[in-house]
Nucleic acid binder design. Structure first.
Lengths: 217, 217
DNA sequence: AAATTATATGAACAAATGTTCATATTTAAG
DNA sequence: CTTAAATATGAACATTTGTTCATATAATTT
């Protein structure tokens, strides 16, 4: 019934369902859930409103489905699941990778829409808040803090509160992602913000790294 | 007609108008603008819906007024207007002051509601986006970067890109403010985030300050 | 106290919106 | 080709929602 995306032999049915979700996401993220009507969604895909009810029980179920998809979205899976110890040893490269991932996600249309939906619904929908907090925030910050802790043990970075550091690394990336999203909405240039992603990684790393001992000289 | 707030001799009329705005802000920030009905607002203040139309042309005008108030809100005036040179000389104390201000604002009910309204409407209302960008973001970051530039000249902090630094200082404060707002919504403990405000200032300052020359020894 | 102004009420309306359903049309299976 | 299942349509519905307005009540001024 579901799953199996990417298969070209999909029954037309599930293709339509996917189209509804895609269209709804675009509209929800632009106008907000409440301000988007069932007619808007149907109209945008060249179909009458009643057709949607063959695929979803009601409007709420469309939102629920999108919210459910959030959990498997790219924005909640920041880390490749490679060996943690190896990852930690790579030091700055690991952080640079995360920075780049954030930057790229800012420019991925699908992710951008999900991000905007998240930001708008978070404040009025407890379930969205829960997903944001557990999957998007907590999970990533915790994972990051364990990496940072390992880096401390490897004496790559100075010893301090890993959770604090993880937050300090995470927060600006989140913020810059928001800035990109806002600028793009008005078709303004994003170049100044884009450079901030890299500058952040650089600045952060310089703040925590242990200067190589001049024992070589 | 307007202005003159704080005067106890206010005509009852403007008191009602203020009450409408206060109630509407509370509801808008909780349920979102579109999901809040005129009946909701009237009901919350124990009055019939039609009464509101003696004070505002329509529902939109209530939102417009609240948005207009954003400009004069505390969240856009982070800096006391004391002498810039004096402020810059105070170094870390200046940053600590801003950090504290952010923290306090997170726990001010009025500000919290405005913040939530801002966050929700920003993505679908161009005017809100403009106010956020110009008054809340740009203005503060620019001001902060001039302070940081002065600190560089005073050799209090290391020389680098002031605008980048300003963003790096600003972003986590913004993020932590959001976190507090979300946690409070579910009546969860905010203590861990609260400490992050101070830790951020500490971490940031340690990252940029120039270690006192050991010329004294 | 009378008159004027400001504010509140109740009832009503039109438009918008989510939803249903009987029927038509398309697609897939036997 | 026939049949069965899936999907789309048009029309209608019950609510919800923003708004208006004539009238009532309260407050302020003269």
């Amino acid at each position: 019934m579901d799953g199996d995306k990417g298969t070209s032999a999909l029954s037309k049915g599930s293709k339509t369902k996917a189209k509804i979700l895609k269209t709804a996401l675009k509209l929800f993220s632009t106008k907000g859930y409440k301000a988007t009507t069932v007619r808007d969604i149907a109209g945008a895909m060249g179909v009458k409103q009643s057709a949607l009810y063959n695929h979803f029980k009601n409007k709420d179920e469309i939102l629920e489905t999108l919210i459910g998809d959030l959990t498997s979205s790219a924005i909640v899976h920041l880390f490749d699941d490679r060996d943690p110890h190896e990852a930690a040893k790579s030091g700055k490269a690991l952080l640079a990778g995360i920075g780049t991932k954030f930057k790229l996600l800012s420019f991925d249309g699908q992710n951008e829409a999900l991000y905007k939906l998240l930001m708008q619904e978070m404040f009025r929908n407890e379930r969205v808040r829960e997903i944001y907090n557990e999957h998007f925030y907590q999970e990533n910050v915790k994972k990051l803090s364990t990496y940072l802790f390992m880096m401390m043990q490897e004496e790559l970075i100075r010893s301090s509160d890993p959770l604090m550091l993880a937050n300090e690394f995470f927060a600006p990336l989140f913020f810059y992602q928001m800035q990109v999203s806002l600028l793009k909405q008005d078709k303004k240039s994003t170049s100044s913000v884009v450079s901030l992603f890299e500058k952040h990684v650089e600045f952060f790393w310089e703040s925590i790294r242990i200067e190589k001992k001049e024992s070589l000289f």
